[in-house]
Design a protein around this nucleic acid. Structure first.
Lengths: 110, 110
DNA sequence: TCAATGGTTCCATATTTATGAACTATTGAA
DNA sequence: TTCAATAGTTCATAAATATGGAACCATTGA
């Protein structure tokens, strides 16, 4: 049984967030998720279809442990959402500022 | 003869900046430099005195190549400044937003 | 010319990251 | 039940990156 561990809001660190977003792939994953109304499966949120499953899984784990996303098991899929409220409470404006400077991956090749 | 290569303003990338700032040591280096009126030597800007010279040198190289700082040789020292104007022009508000969330290293143990 | 200072570069080691293969959990069909 | 398909995770290993000691370079001052 896979259980996902998410840090509580106050345990989210600036360095963790920056490290998580310093990878181009993870930055694009978060960007694509923020632009989406609901939650997304790992495969849906992946901006790069030819990436190894294990690598993708690892990226989601890093985003999760940094506190950027929340993952819940729903059927056979894992549904992911960006923790925008927690991020805004912890680091007001940070996520919006950063994401505002990177291109939306679904606009270019969606 | 050591020559420092700095990226031009337009070549500064978001991912490069985030990667450079995702390291706790480099984040503190930049933070301590921004709070300073003039420029600082590598040793002065180092928030951690027991760090190996080679490691420190590597951190400054990464910050330089990311476009966050400018390094000039002045006598026996290397003088470093944060490229605040270039950063502001390229990614308005980003640096101030990020640095606003990390503690000033010289206030706690300066 | 020599010693001291402030870094850089090189190299070996340690840590981190990426990926294929094997595995787990859920769904749906027979 | 059982079987196949789907969606991810975990493990082991290969590749990339960070660390730090040693040697080195450039400048200053005696």
């Amino acid at each position: 049984m896979v259980q996902f561990v998410h840090p509580s809001r106050d345990d989210i660190t600036l360095e963790g967030v920056l490290a998580a977003l310093s990878d181009p792939m993870r930055l694009r994953i978060v960007k694509s998720m923020v632009g989406q109304p609901g939650c997304m499966s790992c495969t849906e949120a992946a901006p790069c279809p030819d990436m190894a499953k294990s690598t993708l899984s690892n990226h989601f784990r890093i985003l999760r442990e940094a506190g950027l996303i929340r993952t819940e098991k729903k059927g056979v899929e894992h549904r992911n959402v960006v923790r925008q409220d927690d991020m805004e409470a912890r680091f007001p404006g940070l996520l919006k500022t950063i994401l505002g400077f990177c291109d939306d991956p679904r606009r270019s090749n969606g």
